[in-house]
């Protein structure tokens, strides 16, 4: 059975239809890359999965638990929404680290507040994760003392500390200088080897091609094309996809 099933998600902001019926499913350990031009609704989709926005229509199911059902009229309580969020993690484009906490504290804060173990366990897990993302020597540093790439790796460790079932990335390298994207993409790739289920919105076509199991091309709030990287990049069926991929190649 699929780990995550998204069925017919629709979302409007006022009169603008941003998501016009998005459906896909994800197996455990699968990596999904979402590509598409700016404004196509990629961020909104991730925000819906993390319950920062509530869809107007559709269902979100994790395992056999229906987290959201647009046809159910009862409004979700704050507490239910908070519980739902724990199934997902989100790494933001601009990191959003907590500036007053050092690297280690950024990672331990949420597990500590949510009582996800003893202080010793939480500390040990955090140190392990920070070693995994290559920041063992920066535990005491504050975010402003780090490069963008380092900050993003802290943000990844922070999200992993709560062991989300699905980890989402919203253009994790878009705010970085080009020479810093590699270190972040390498970390994300290493997570795949550890069987982390991920949804990565990205403009890095090479990365999507080499790391993703499935690629979705989004355009104007719909899934224009979905398939393996070979299918989407090698043999796109839709004209729109072809034009988009053509465009991304021309840049380089």
């Amino acid at each position: 059975m699929a780990l995550l099933t998204v069925n017919d998600i629709k979302k409007n902001f006022g009169k603008t239809e941003v998501l016009k019926g998005i459906s896909f499913s994800l197996e455990k350990g699968e990596v999904l890359a979402i590509i598409g031009s700016s404004g196509s609704g990629k961020t909104t989709l991730l925000r819906c999965l993390n319950f920062l926005e509530l869809p107007d229509v559709g269902t979100i199911t994790v395992g056999d638990k229906v987290l959201f059902d647009g046809s159910d009229d009862t409004t979700l309580s704050d507490e239910a929404i908070r519980q739902n969020r724990l199934h997902f993690g989100l790494v933001f484009q601009n990191f959003n680290l907590f500036p007053q906490y050092n690297v280690l504290q950024n990672v331990t804060l949420a597990p500590t507040l949510l009582k996800k173990g003893t202080p010793q366990e939480i500390d040990a897990t955090a140190r392990g994760l920070l070693e995994q993302v290559g920041l063992s020597d920066k535990l005491e540093s504050y975010p402003y003392q780090l490069s963008g790439g380092q900050q993003q790796r802290v943000a990844i460790a922070r999200a992993l500390a709560l062991r989300p079932e699905v980890l989402c990335f919203d253009e994790p390298t878009s705010a970085l200088d080009p020479e810093l994207t590699g270190e972040v993409l390498r970390v994300i790739r290493s997570l795949k080897d550890r069987d982390t289920t991920m949804i990565v919105v990205t403009h890095e076509m090479e990365f999507a091609r080499n790391v993703a199991d499935t690629v979705i091309y989004m355009a104007d709030g719909v899934i224009e094309e979905m398939g393996t990287p070979e299918e989407v990049f090698g043999n796109p069926r839709s004209e729109k996809t072809k034009a988009f991929l053509q465009g991304t190649q021309n840049i380089y």
């Binding site: 993390n50 319950f51 920062l52 704050d78 908070r82 519980q83 969020r85 724990l86 997902f88 993690g89 989100l90 933001f92 601009n94 959003n96 680290l97 907590f98 804060l109 949420a110 507040l113 949510l114 922070r158 999200a159 709560l162």
Partner: peptide, 17 residues
């Protein structure tokens, strides 16, 4: 910034936390 609140929300923290 709103990002600070949202970073807290996606970590499952309560408004008061």
């Amino acid at each position: 910034s709103r990002g600070q609140y949202e970073a807290g929300y996606v970590l499952g923290l309560t408004k008061s936390q």
